[in-house]
Simulated assay, not measured.
Amino acid sequence: MTTAKISFREISKTYPLKDTVFTALDRVSLDIADEEFVTVVGPSGCGKSTLMSMAAGLVEPTGGEVLVDGAPVTGPGPDRGVIFQQYALFPWLTVRKNVEFGLRLAGLAPEERRARAERAIELVGLADFADALPKMLSGGMKQRCAIARAYAVNPRVLLMDEPFGALDALTRVQLQDQLLHTWSQERRTVMFITHDVDEAVYLARRVVVMAARPGRIHKIVDVDLPYPRTEEMRLSPEFSGIRAEVWHSVYHQAPAA
């Protein structure tokens, strides 16, 4: 494996309660390689989103450190694109203007903004809707717009927190394939949080299974399946075996010592 793009080193996060301290994360260590696609799955309350938010620079650890390209994360930065379950699009701006928004904040010239936005919109298959307002888009199209906005600023790392969680099953599968197609072209490093075991296995090279109370890494499962992933692969014995391993790791964990 190549040099780590993202490194979590002995990460802990605690929150004071009335009479005690709640430990959300307990000494979590994990390396994610450059251009690797890693999914993180686990029971509710295991700290998946907190861990991702630390990589984004939105939450500070109580102990340990997060590194990106060997440098400590001290806050948000353009090298990391963050995509949440909520689309957070500006309803009065078109798809193109939403995608250009971060580029305008970065001070890029109009011509450069337009070129980058159009490339990102093309990548996610929304070229025919570039001038549409969000109210004209389906839920899946809105999420593709959010992904395009993250891609447009050219981050080397994509941090995705259950981006397809609110979508229907068919749209979810379609966007999984769209995301993998885009990733195969761009080869960014992806950390993808999900509750869905099938999604976790289908997308990833490795699935990180977390345990709760305190949040910690329970198991890391290698997904020894080639890219591109296909619908036939979802039905294969190999996929079923990996899915069963992840499922058992998530839902049949022994309680913390």
Rank of each mutant, 00 (worst) to 15 (best):
G165P: 02
A24M: 06
Y87F: 12
F239E: 04
A127W: 02
K18E: 11
A33Y: 13
L89M: 06
L167P: 01
V208E: 08
K5F: 04
I242P: 01
I6W: 08
Q85N: 07
A148N: 03
L235T: 15
V209H: 10
T171P: 02
L67I: 14
F239K: 03
H218W: 10
A115F: 03
L51T: 01
A109Q: 12
R229H: 13
T194Q: 05
S240M: 13
R213T: 15
I32Q: 04
L67P: 02
G139T: 11
Q174T: 11
I242S: 10
R119Y: 04
S12G: 10
R229A: 14
P237H: 09
T50I: 08
A169D: 02
L158K: 06
D131P: 00
L170V: 12
V221Y: 09
S240C: 11
K13E: 10
G42N: 10
K135G: 00
V221K: 01
F129S: 11
H248D: 08
F101V: 13
Q185I: 15
A211Y: 00
D79G: 06
E112V: 05
L159V: 15
R116C: 06
P16G: 01
I6M: 11
K13R: 15
I217A: 01
D34H: 15
D79K: 08
D128W: 00
S44G: 03
H218V: 05
T74E: 14
P78L: 14
I217P: 00
P228Q: 10
L123P: 02
V124I: 07
R187T: 14
T14C: 04
E231V: 12
M210L: 10
L179V: 15
I11T: 02
L30S: 03
L105C: 11
A24C: 09
V153I: 15
V124H: 05
S249Q: 03
I220L: 09
H195D: 04
F84I: 05
A244T: 15
D128V: 07
L58D: 05
Y227E: 12
L103Y: 09
L158S: 09
C145P: 00
R187G: 11
L105M: 14
S236A: 13
L179K: 09
T230M: 11
Y15I: 14
V157P: 00
K142Q: 11
I217Y: 05
M136S: 05
M52T: 07
L93M: 15
V66W: 05
A166T: 05
Q253N: 08
L180C: 08
L58T: 10
D26W: 14
A4K: 03
A211C: 01
R113G: 02
L93A: 14
F239A: 01
D131R: 03
R119S: 06
F239I: 01
V209A: 09
A244N: 14
P228M: 06
D224T: 15
V190G: 06
L133R: 05
T94I: 02
L17S: 12
E36C: 14
R206H: 13
P16D: 11
V221M: 07
S184G: 08
